[in-house]
Write a protein that binds this DNA or RNA. Structure first.
Length: 521
RNA sequence: GCUCCCGUAGUCUAGUCCGGUCAAGGAUCCGGGGCCUUCGACCCCGAAACGCGGGUUCGAAUCCCGCCGGGAGCACCA
C-alpha cells in the first residue's frame, strides 16, 4: 500500500517536527504534493539559523525574486530561524543604479509575499566596516592597489599577466590604500584587488576587484563615501559580521562563494556554507527588467503593477495569490537545474485555491445586441447559482430576454443555426450575421435543454460595460451582468468561459465601465 | 576559448549520495469519457521519460569513462 511507503519518511521527520513546537504534521504532505526537495542545511540547529536575502533596489520584486523569497521562508520556518533583509545598495553602475523609491517598494513586496524579515539592514550604512577588513587583507599581502584602467585590467586578467602594482609590499599597498580613501584618485583611477593566482584556470577568479571608487550619488548616503566594496567582498565581511549561518542564493553567484572562502582562508575566519538554486524562468514572462524599468518610467506601462512586468504586485493585481506562488516556486525545490515553466503551472496552482470559493458571473466580449422574437415573458428574469457546484454561495436573479448581448466571435461561427443560451432557452440565429451597430434578430425556438452549441449571454436590461485589462496590457470592452455594478474593489470573479478576473482598486465612477484585470483561465 | 553547474515524459519534479523494493511515482499539459448546461472544477480512462555510447556488476536512472546537449561566470554591476 502506498500509505505504508509514505509512513516511513514521515516517521523519520517526526522528531524534527515535534521539536518545532508542535507544528502541524503536514509538512511531509506539503513536500509530497509540492514535489521539490529541500535538503537539510548543513549543521543547522533549530532556532539558531540566520539567513539573509539581498535584493538590489533598482526595481520591484518579480516572479524570479519569488524564488529568493520563498526558499528563505521555507528554511526559516523549517529551522525556526531569523531572516535578514540586507539591501545590497552599493551605488551600482550607470546602467543599474540604486534608487530611493525601491527600498520601500521592496519592503512592501516582502509584506505582500508574506515574507516579513526579522531585521532590515542597509549595506550603505556599513561602508566604514569594510575598510578594516580590506586593511587586514593588505597587511597579509593578499591585496594591492591597482591603477590599471578597467580595459587593461581585464585584458591582463585574461592573459594571466600581472601589472606592476601587484609587486607592492604590504606597506606600499597600505599607503596606496590610504591614498584611495583620502581621495587622491578619481573614480576609476584605482581599485583594491585581491591577490589570488594569475594562473588560475578559471579566468574569472584571477585577482578580482575588492573595492572601487564611485562618485555616483547614492540615494541614502549621497556622496559620503567614495570607496565602495564590491558585492563579494562586502559579503565576505557581512556574512561573518551579521552572523549569517547559511547563505542561500542563485547559482549565478557561485564564483562569489569561492571568493568569500578565499578571503576567509587568508584571514583565518570561519564563514557559513553556501547553497544554490538554479535559474527560473516563466515562459510567458519576458525577463527584460530594463525594459520594464523604461516602460514604467516613461508611462507606457501602468506603473509597477502593470501585468507586463510580471512583478509580485502585478500578480496580486491579477488575483494570483501569494500562497499559489509559493507552492509553485517550492515545487522546484533547490535543484541546480535551470527551469523554464509555462505560466499555466502557476495558474493551475491558483485555480486549486480559488475555484471553489469564487463566484461566477456572465461576461460577453465583443458584445453584439440580439433581439429575440417570440421570447416568452416567463423567462424575462431567471435565478442562477453563483457557483455551479457550491449552493452555499447562493444565487442571484438576472434579467434575461428578449434582448441580449452575445459574443460576436461565437455568433459569427454559426449563422442560421439553432443555439442555446446557456442556462436559459434555445433560439435560432439569422442566416447572415455582420458586425453592425443595429441589433440583429433571432427567433425563440424552445426551452428544453438540448445538445446545442451553448453561448454565453448577458441580458441587455441592467447590464454594465466592463473593461478587462489583459495580460498583454491591452484593454477589452465587453458587457457584464447587472450584479457586477456592485462589485467591490479587489473582489475576484470567474467570468464564465473566459477566466478569473479581479476587480481593480481604483473604483470606476458611475457610468464608467467596471474595471477588472484578467488573471488566468 | 577558459571555468563551474545541469541533463528523468511536452513541461516541472521524486528517485541518483548508500546499485535490486523503479517493468520509474506525483503535478501540469494533451486526448477520450462521466457529471445530462462553463472552453472552469470534480471523477474515470489513456498517451507520454531515465540525452548518447562504452565499462563495472548476477543486476545500473543510480557507480566509472567518453561524447553530445543546455545554462551561468570570465564587469572598477548586483
Amino acid at each position: 500500500m502506498a500509505t505504508e511507503v509514505a509512513a516511513l519518511p514521515r516517521a523519520e521527520l517526526e522528531p524534527a517536527l515535534s521539536a518545532l513546537g508542535g507544528a502541524e504534521t503536514d509538512r511531509p504532505k506539503e513536500a509530497r504534493s509540492a514535489g521539490g526537495e529541500f535538503p537539510d542545511l548543513p549543521g543547522a540547529e533549530l532556532g539558531q539559523v540566520v539567513l539573509r536575502m539581498a535584493p538590489f533596489p533598482s526595481g520591484v520584486l518579480h516572479v524570479g525574486h519569488g524564488r529568493m523569497l520563498y526558499v528563505h521562508q521555507h528554511y526559516r520556518e523549517r529551522y525556526a530561524g531569523r531572516l535578514l533583509l540586507v539591501f545590497d545598495d552599493t551605488p551600482g553602475s550607470e546602467e543599474k543604479r540604486a534608487e530611493t523609491e525601491y527600498f520601500d517598494l521592496i519592503l512592501g513586496d516582502c509584506e505582500l509575499a508574506g515574507v516579513v524579515p526579522d531585521q532590515v539592514v542597509y549595506k550603505s550604512d556599513r561602508v566604514p566596516q569594510f575598510y578594516p577588513w580590506a586593511r587586514r587583507l593588505i597587511d597579509r599581502g593578499a591585496a594591492y592597489v591597482c591603477r590599471c584602467p578597467a580595459e587593461l585590467l581585464r585584458q591582463r586578467r585574461t592573459q594571466g599577466v600581472a601589472c606592476a602594482e601587484r609587486a607592492q609590499s604590504p606597506g606600499e599597498a597600505a599607503d596606496e590604500w590610504e591614498r584611495m580613501l583620502s581621495g587622491a584618485y578619481a573614480a576609476g583611477g584605482a581599485v583594491l584587488r585581491l591577490k589570488t593566482d594569475l594562473g588560475d584556470p578559471d579566468p574569472a577568479f584571477r585577482d578580482r576587484v575588492l573595492c572601487r571608487i564611485s562618485d555616483l550619488d547614492h540615494p541614502r548616503v549621497g556622496h559620503r563615501y567614495r570607496v565602495w566594496p564590491m558585492l563579494e567582498f562586502s559579503w565576505a565581511v557581512d556574512d561573518v559580521e551579521l552572523g549569517v549561518t547559511h547563505v542561500l542564493r542563485g547559482k549565478d553567484l557561485v564564483i562569489e562563494d569561492r571568493m568569500q572562502r578565499y578571503i576567509w582562508d587568508v584571514l583565518g575566519v570561519d564563514g557559513p556554507p553556501f547553497l544554490h538554486w538554479g535559474m527560473l524562468r516563466v515562459r510567458e514572462a519576458k525577463v527584460s527588467k530594463s525594459k520594464s524599468y523604461r516602460e514604467v518610467k516613461s508611462g507606457v506601462y501602468d506603473g509597477w503593477s502593470d501585468p507586463r512586468t510580471w512583478s509580485l504586485r502585478s500578480l496580486d493585481r491579477r488575483g494570483i495569490s501569494m500562497e499559489a506562488l509559493r507552492a509553485f516556486i517550492l515545487s522546484f525545490g533547490m535543484s541546480l537545474a535551470d527551469v523554464e515553466v509555462p505560466a499555466e503551472t502557476l495558474y493551475a496552482e491558483n485555480r486549486k485555491r480559488i475555484d471553489a470559493t469564487t463566484v461566477r458571473r456572465a461576461y460577453v466580449p465583443e458584445p453584439v445586441r440580439v433581439d429575440v422574437d417570440g421570447f416568452p415573458d416567463a423567462l424575462r428574469s431567471v435565478e442562477l447559482p453563483n457557483h455551479p457546484d457550491r449552493s452555499e454561495l447562493g444565487h442571484r436573479t438576472v434579467a434575461a430576454g428578449p434582448s441580449f448581448y452575445l459574443p460576436y466571435a461565437d455568433l459569427a461561427r454559426r449563422p442560421g443555426e439553432e443555439i442555446r443560451l446557456k442556462d436559459l432557452a434555445n433560439v435560432r440565429l439569422p442566416a447572415t450575421i455582420a458586425p453592425s451597430p443595429s441589433p440583429i434578430r433571432a427567433t425563440f425556438t424552445s426551452r428544453e435543454n438540448r445538445r446545442l452549441p451553448r453561448l454565453q449571454w448577458v441580458g441587455v436590461e441592467g447590464s454594465v460595460p466592463v473593461d478587462v485589462l489583459g495580460i498583454d496590457g491591452t484593454h477589452a470592452l465587453g458587457r457584464g451582468e447587472a450584479a457586477l455594478a456592485d462589485a467591490r474593489p479587489r473582489e475576484i470573479f470567474q467570468f464564465e468561459r473566459v477566466g478569473f478576473v479581479r476587480v481593480e482598486d481604483r473604483r470606476s465612477t458611475p457610468g464608467e465601465p467596471v474595471r477588472v484585470v484578467y488573471g488566468h483561465p
